[in-house]
């Protein structure tokens, strides 16, 4: 293992332990009722995980996105991906921050807008971002996973910065969160099917169930590889197209995996009491945030059509 790899492994191991201990069903339920997971946030900050990838942190953007993937895996109910990206764009800061999309003079779809010290508004077709300190929440809302998605006002005085492809970077964050959640869904499916007995044996012994889980494993593996590839393209000249391929592929996997894993869980997985929905609903919600499959497929497809049929192979057959 290289030094960079072992640094990353150490981060993931430490964070994984914290999440295993603290990021459980009761915490997820409380977060859904609007309570910020302050203790968990404290532990993240104490370990410096909110500064991953920033200058002087001794860690890379790869480490940061690997951590974001892990947060997706545990459904960490904090705007931690957003905080990390704000620190990446604005320089390291101590607080909890968030990111939303600029629309009609406001910033919408802001995770935990009500609880953060700073919000950055990004735009799909522009590299100009708006930094709003001490944001004023004008509307509270949630996405279909019960995660806060607020609207904050965008004052004329907001600082403007140029951040290349900030919106696409958010798509990379969501791709990684989804990839993490799909791996979790696979684990839940394996676990439940090994414990649930019908017809005198664990349902995992039925070939139909085995095949469903095999399909899920393939999709989850593809999602992870696609999300990783988008990260590796960061700062390169193909970045937006790799994001397109990544988010499109991951988004496709999300629907399929959630559907199959719910089927494996039977009625139990349809209850609010079971933990499954915390992950499946997030996968469903996240695939539409920062460009769904159709948006990114069309963007990538238009580019390829423009290159022309005989250039497509050169585009696909890259070194990385």
């Amino acid at each position: 293992m290289s030094e960079a790899q072992s640094t990353q492994q150490l981060i993931l191991d430490t964070a994984g332990r914290i999440f295993n201990d603290h990021c459980n069903k009761p915490l997820l339920d409380r977060a859904e009722q609007g309570h910020l997971a302050e203790t968990l946030w404290g532990q993240i900050a104490e370990n410096g995980f909110n500064l991953l990838g920033t200058a002087d942190s001794g860690t890379s953007a790869q480490d940061m996105f690997a951590f974001i993937q892990l947060c997706g895996n545990h459904a960490v109910p904090l705007p931690i991906a957003e905080t990390l990206l704000v620190n990446r764009w604005c320089g390291p800061g101590d607080g909890l921050f968030s990111v939303g999309e600029v629309a009609d003079g406001r910033i919408v779809e802001v995770p935990w807008g009500r609880a953060v010290q700073k919000v950055v508004g990004v735009q799909r077709n522009s590299d100009t971002v708006f930094v709003v300190n001490a944001p004023e929440v004008v509307e509270q809302g949630v996405n279909m996973a019960g995660e806060p998605r607020d609207v904050v006002s965008l004052p004329d005085t907001a600082e403007q910065l140029t951040v290349a492809d900030a919106w696409a970077q958010m798509a990379v964050a969501r791709s990684n969160q989804i990839a993490g959640s799909l791996l979790k869904l696979l684990d839940l499916g394996i676990l439940y099917s090994s414990e649930r007995i019908q017809f005198g044996r664990a349902i995992s012994k039925f070939q139909a169930i085995q095949h469903s889980l095999a399909i899920v494993a393939a999709e989850a593996a593809a999602a992870k590889r696609a999300a990783d590839a988008a990260v590796d393209a960061l700062d390169g000249d193909r970045f937006v197209f790799e994001v397109a391929a990544g988010k499109a592929r991951v988004g496709e996997a999300a629907g399929l995996v959630a559907e199959q894993i719910h089927q494996v869980h039977g009625a139990m997985g349809f209850t609010h009491e079971h933990q499954l929905h915390h992950y499946s609903r997030r996968a469903w919600a996240w695939r539409d945030e920062y460009g769904n499959e159709f948006y990114w497929q069309a963007l990538l497809g238009s580019h390829l059509a423009n290159l022309g049929a005989d250039q497509v192979w050169s585009f696909i057959a890259t070194r990385g």
Partner: peptide
């Protein structure tokens, strides 16, 4: 365009795997 992009995204991921 979406059909083209969808296929390309799959090729890119499969190839990496």
């Amino acid at each position: 365009a979406a059909a083209i992009g969808r296929i390309a995204a799959h090729f890119m991921t499969l190839r990496r795997m």
